[in-house]
Write a protein that binds this DNA or RNA. Structure first.
Lengths: 213, 213
DNA sequence: TTCTCGCCGAGACAAATGTCCTTTTTTATG
DNA sequence: CATAAAAAAGGACATTTGTCTCGGCGAGAA
């Protein structure tokens, strides 16, 4: 859910040290700032060095769907560079974010020149397909309650905690539904539903739930 | 929705002609046959030469979710080869399917040796991410009715017609809901809802709807 | 022709979800 | 500390969706 790719990051950091010029820069963004706006044309790709951002689609009916949360080493804008298309998602910083800004021609030439880089990129794209497909299936076919439980576990594992709005947008539901499901989950945890109780007893998840009240 | 990739197909056909040996074979599969079973280990990738198949995840609660329909030039098993993992989807032939069967080591060495091939593969993976993400967002945030309408349009464009079961599995809903939504759509088409009427008047879509009664 | 089996569609009901609006809580400010 | 303003939570209702079930219809066998 919070994707990271340390291979990518270390490759790029090495590359930057070697080839100083090449107009690669490191920029910082305040929480909430939109690195990328859906529909824009861009000519850079970004690789996150620090912080967490969210990648989300805004539909015409006014609703947002969060595709993924991006952490260290995740790349953004590469699909647009590869396929020469306008941005299909928004990307916004959640925490303070610093990222390498790389002109797309540098990115594309890296693919040509470095098979190591290409390998890392192929791995990254594969991972995305797997995660996106798996999640789409899970969220379509299971109840919100299960999806929410899974989302809490993921956050506990990654030691992050998202806002309610973001969680609802990730689950593709309204905040109202989110609140309802959360309440039900807590009730079931206090009763003796084994599936729920065990998971909700975990210290990390308890903390998360407490914060949400 | 029905993905195809003619670049991929023509590359592979050329490659087969050049390097006869290499134990690449061409196999045929009857409708319904499962080329790939979720959870299996495989050591081949498949490239579809003819016919249509469906790629779907079977969840533990017994429900299926169709990730995509695959036509000419689509590749299957490449994620498993790239990431050395067990199969994450089932793939089943819908019509009679013929496909090139390529040992994964041949596939992997092609990536090393041919930058043309790698480019095609990068394009393919990018397309998948885009389509999967876009669809997940759309299906989560719009009503089933809209998703169904879109699905009918897609089928009309591609000149294919799917079974009700498959359409429901693609939309991630029960057949009961599918029937209900279809009925409502038809009613709205007969009344004067401009958004629906116009689309449902298209000859191709009419045919599809008629077939579904 | 008639009977049976199996499939498909739809009714009835329960559960889940969204929307709208009121109530409660939090935050900011004098 | 008091009060107003803003944000979050939750109730009520309508709509959507899933499950279970029954009844109709057609294909095939006697």
């Amino acid at each position: 859910m919070l994707r990271t790719n340390l291979d990518f990051l270390s490759f790029i950091e090495r590359f930057c040290r070697e080839i100083e010029s090449e107009n690669i820069s490191l920029k910082s963004f305040k929480p909430g700032y939109r690195l990328i706006e859906q529909g824009d044309k861009i000519s850079n790709i970004y690789i996150i060095k620090e912080g967490i951002s969210k990648c989300f689609i805004s539909e015409e009916n006014g609703k947002d769907f969060i595709i993924e949360f991006l952490g260290k080493g995740e790349v953004v804008g590469e699909l647009e560079a590869l396929k020469k298309i306008d941005c299909l998602c928004n990307v916004a910083a959640i925490s303070e974010v610093t990222a390498y800004v790389i002109p797309d021609h540098v990115f594309l030439s890296l693919i040509q020149k470095s098979s190591e880089f290409t390998t890392i990129l192929l791995q990254e794209l594969s991972t995305r397909i797997i995660q996106t497909s798996t999640r789409a299936s899970f969220q379509q076919l299971y109840t919100v309650e299960y999806a929410l439980l899974k989302l809490l576990q993921l956050q506990a594992n990654e030691s992050i905690s998202l806002s309610k709005d973001d969680m609802a947008a990730y689950l593709g539901i309204s905040v109202r539904s989110f609140n309802r499901s959360l309440k039900q989950l807590i009730e079931k945890g206090n009763q003796d539903r084994p599936e729920f109780k065990n998971m909700l007893q975990t210290a990390n998840i308890k903390k998360l739930v407490d914060r949400l009240k």
